[in-house]
Write a protein that binds this DNA or RNA. Sequence first.
DNA 1: CTTATTGTTTCGGTGTGCCTAATAATCTGT
DNA 2: ACAGATTATTAGGCACACCGAAACAATAAG
Lengths: 237, 237
Amino acid sequence: MKTSTPSSSIEDYVKVIYSFTEWQQKPITSTQLAQRLGVANSSVSEMVRKLKDQGLVDHKPYSAVTLTADGVRLALSMVRRHRLIETFLVQELGYRWDEVHDEAELLEHAVSDTFIDRMAAKLGNPARDPHGDPIPAADGSVRMPSAHRLSELDDGHTGRITRISDENPELLRYLAAEDIDLDAEVEVVGRRPFGGPLVVRIGSAAASREFDFAEEVASALWVHSDAAHTGCNVADL
Amino acid sequence: MKTSTPSSSIEDYVKVIYSFTEWQQKPITSTQLAQRLGVANSSVSEMVRKLKDQGLVDHKPYSAVTLTADGVRLALSMVRRHRLIETFLVQELGYRWDEVHDEAELLEHAVSDTFIDRMAAKLGNPARDPHGDPIPAADGSVRMPSAHRLSELDDGHTGRITRISDENPELLRYLAAEDIDLDAEVEVVGRRPFGGPLVVRIGSAAASREFDFAEEVASALWVHSDAAHTGCNVADL
DNA sequence: CTTATTGTTTCGGTGTGCCTAATAATCTGT
DNA sequence: ACAGATTATTAGGCACACCGAAACAATAAG
């Protein structure tokens, strides 16, 4: 179990493994890892062995990959870096929210802990990034908002947008153009027949608009139910 | 002559080659390059061949290394990055001037051109960094202040500090503690016998203080003569 | 229950940037 | 001008992170 500084590849692997389980429930497989990282399956096998040697993941041949406590710690610190950087780019340097992902992807491996700390201080230790993703605290605690994909809600359900997946920049630009942002009120009106788009009402009662959302849009929007403000404190490892 | 994105090693080599000639006059040798980069001589030989293949340097075996026009262009863009980042860290994130060098060294390879542009805009396109080093403009033009090392001035000479070498963080901390900063007025009083320290008067006539500067301090401070404000516009390649 | 199909790992090989050790070129002192 | 020291280059290797192709499990289908 070396404590040497992890390479940026290792940081990426661990971050992707963590991110997969952040909003899904099942652990990630070799092939999925390869797809998300854009590398060959063989590269993943090799790297997973290295991660295991370093005590960052648990893995038995031909089964899924899960993080150890050390792995989660490292992953959370990378996620914290990523999301703080994204927030900083938007708030301090005038980036649009569809531009920040790639830049943060590069910076998160390069900056020092000091840089992260100063940035967090300047931003007032924000709890979430421009897409609504929770920013882990320096001690590794995360406040995960309880949220469900818009695409999975029943008709008539109401709530607020708490998170918007940043995987597709095009999608973010579309939402920005339509003036759909975090914390907007939403109501599921219904679904067009034969797996058609989801009909949704967005905005406060006074000025609300109706949208037909394709599956990709509906599953990128995460909604927090109006009812109770239930959050759970995850991962004090 | 590939136009592919240069690796961060290549960026470092080119930057060091340029920096050497920025304040010296002679081109850099293999060994000096190796020392400044902290690598073996053999590594330099190998890399210099690669730089030559890419058209960034001119080099004949067993002689010094000089940059081509392409090389200078790349070097200036790296120097611009480095110095803008340093300025940003001091002005926006509250870094002390002795802390910024190493952080900038890492960041300069990671950030995008967009990041650099936005940073420069936010800072108001500064012409020099916290140590007084000139920041090349985006088009590659540099305004080099005409300055001489304090250690090389004759007795009685007066001027203002235009640049403070950032090579030694200890030195920067010492100067900060003594409240010696850019643009301070200086007068060379004399030199203690037998190559002793240089005696210097610093500050405006009203409240000036006298210092005995060891060679390392005296040669880290660059002074602009009171006389004419002569700058020259270098490198519009 | 044996055979496809799919997923995973192993094997050999690539490029980059570094190393040490050996060798070749240049500079220096007498 | 030449031996000896210094400086530079080549040769052979290593670690990292990647690849394609081939071998190997696990699962699904006939």
